[in-house]
Simulated assay, not measured.
Amino acid sequence: MDFLSKGLLTFLFLLQTIQASPDTKLFREYIGAEFKGVTFSDVPISPSVDFHFILSFAIDYTTSDSPSPTNGQFNVFWDTDNLSPSQISSIKNNHPNVKVALSLGGDSIGNGYAYFNPSSIDSWVDNAVSSLTSIINQYNLDGIDVDYEHFQSDPETFAECIGRLLKVLKNKGVISFASIAPFDDEEVQSHYLALWRKYGHLIDYVNFQFYAYDEGTTVSQFLSYFDTQRSNYGGGKILASFISDGSGGLSPNNGFFSACATLKREGKFHGIFIWSADDSMSNGFRYEKRSQAFLASAR
Rank of each mutant, 00 (worst) to 15 (best):
M1P: 03
F3M: 10
K6E: 10
K6Q: 12
L14P: 00
T17S: 13
P22E: 11
K25I: 13
L26H: 08
F27G: 01
Y30S: 04
K36I: 07
V38K: 01
V43H: 01
D50I: 15
F51N: 03
F53K: 10
F57L: 05
T63L: 09
P69M: 07
Q73G: 00
V76T: 14
F77G: 03
D81V: 10
N82M: 10
S84F: 01
I91K: 05
S103Q: 07
G106Y: 07
S108W: 13
S120I: 06
S123F: 00
S123L: 08
S123W: 00
A128T: 07
V129R: 00
V129T: 08
S131R: 03
I136C: 03
I136L: 06
Q138W: 00
L141N: 04
G143W: 00
D147E: 09
E149R: 15
E149Y: 09
F151V: 12
F151G: 06
Q152P: 09
D154C: 01
P155I: 14
L165V: 11
N171E: 14
N171C: 00
K172E: 15
K172A: 14
G173Q: 09
V174G: 05
I175M: 05
I175N: 02
S176G: 10
A178N: 05
A178K: 00
P182T: 11
P182A: 11
D184I: 10
E187D: 15
S190E: 01
H191V: 14
Y192I: 14
L193P: 00
L193F: 09
Y199H: 13
I203L: 13
N207T: 06
Y211D: 12
Y211N: 11
A212T: 15
T218M: 04
V219P: 03
Q229V: 13
R230S: 14
S231M: 07
S231A: 10
D245C: 03
A259Y: 12
A261L: 09
A261Y: 12
T262E: 08
K264Y: 11
R265Y: 04
F273T: 02
F273W: 12
I274E: 05
D279L: 14
D279N: 08
S282R: 06
S282N: 12
F285P: 00
R286E: 09
Y287P: 00
E288Q: 15
R290H: 13
A293H: 06
